[in-house]
C-alpha cells in the first residue's frame, strides 16, 4: 500500500494542499478527481517522493518515507513512478526516444537485455521512431515513450497525472490499456488522476475526491 496521510504542502504562504489523505492499494486503479488548482498534481509529486510536504506522513509498503527527492533511498523512490500531463516537459529534449526509455536502466546500472525494445513495442513505438528526438515526434508518440519509461523499472505504484488529457481518444485508450496490462501482470497499484469523470468511471476501480470528507477518513 502507498499511504499518504495528513499531507499539507505550502508554497510560501499559499496552501497548495491541506491535510490530504489517500491510499493506493496494489492491483487496484484508484481514481482521483477534482478541479484544477485543488492540489492533485501537488499530491502526485508528494506520492512520487518528489516534493517534501510541510507535514504529514507517507509510507510505501509499510516503509516510512523520511527523505525526499534525491535524498530518498534509490530503492524506495523507484518503487513509485510518475507520468506527467505534458510529455514535452517531461523528457530531456536532447535524448532520443530510446534513450528516454533506457534512462532509468542506465541510471541504476542495469543492462538493457532487450527491455527497451520490448517496452517500446508494447507502447506501439516502432523502430524508426526510437531514434528520433522529442521535437521530431507528436505529443501522443512522446507520451507513449514516457509511459514506457515509467514502466522500465517495474514500479510497485504508478501515478498517472492527467496522463491522457492532451491526447486523442485512440491514444488514450491505448495508454490506459498498457497501464492496465502492466497492473494485471505485476499487481501494481495505480492512481489515475484526471478531471475527466467519464474516463475515471471507465478506468478506475474506485474513485476518491480530495474534497470529500468521507474519502479523507478512509482506513
Amino acid at each position: 500500500m502507498l499511504e499518504a496521510s495528513g499531507i499539507t504542502v505550502r508554497y510560501g504562504r499559499q496552501v497548495a494542499l491541506d491535510d490530504a489523505s489517500l491510499t493506493i492499494e496494489p492491483g487496484v486503479v484508484t481514481g482521483l478527481a477534482g478541479p484544477s488548482g485543488c492540489g492533485k498534481s501537488t499530491l502526485a509529486r508528494v506520492l512520487a517522493l518528489m516534493l517534501r510536504p510541510r507535514s504529514g506522513t507517507l509510507t510505501v509498503d509499510g516503509d516510512p518515507v523520511l527523505r525526499w527527492r534525491q535524498r530518498a533511498p534509490r530503492e524506495l523512490r523507484t518503487r513509485v513512478a510518475l507520468i506527467y500531463q505534458q510529455p514535452r516537459l517531461a523528457v530531456d529534449p536532447r535524448l532520443t526516444l530510446a534513450d528516454v526509455i533506457r534512462e532509468p536502466l542506465t541510471a541504476n546500472g542495469r543492462p538493457d537485455d532487450g527491455r527497451v525494445a520490448e517496452l517500446a513495442g508494447e507502447a506501439g513505438l516502432t523502430g524508426d521512431l526510437l531514434t528520433r528526438r522529442p521535437h521530431e515526434v507528436s505529443d501522443g508518440q512522446l507520451q507513449r515513450a514516457c509511459v514506457a519509461r515509467a514502466l522500465t523499472l517495474e514500479p510497485r505504484y504508478l501515478i498517472c497525472d492527467e496522463m491522457t488529457t492532451m491526447l486523442d481518444a485512440s491514444t488514450q485508450a491505448h495508454l490506459v490499456r498498457l497501464v492496465n496490462a502492466y497492473r494485471e501482470r505485476t499487481g501494481a497499484g495505480v492512481l489515475a488522476i484526471s478531471h475527466d469523470t467519464i474516463l475515471l468511471n471507465r478506468w478506475a476501480d474506485k474513485t476518491v475526491d480530495l474534497f470529500d470528507p468521507a474519502d479523507q477518513k478512509q482506513p
Binding site: D168, A169, S170, T171, A173, I198, R202
Partner: peptide
Amino acid sequence: LVAAQPDRDFVP
C-alpha cells in the same frame, strides 16, 4: 475514434 472513447468501447 468514436469507439475509443471511454464511454464507448474504449478500444484503441
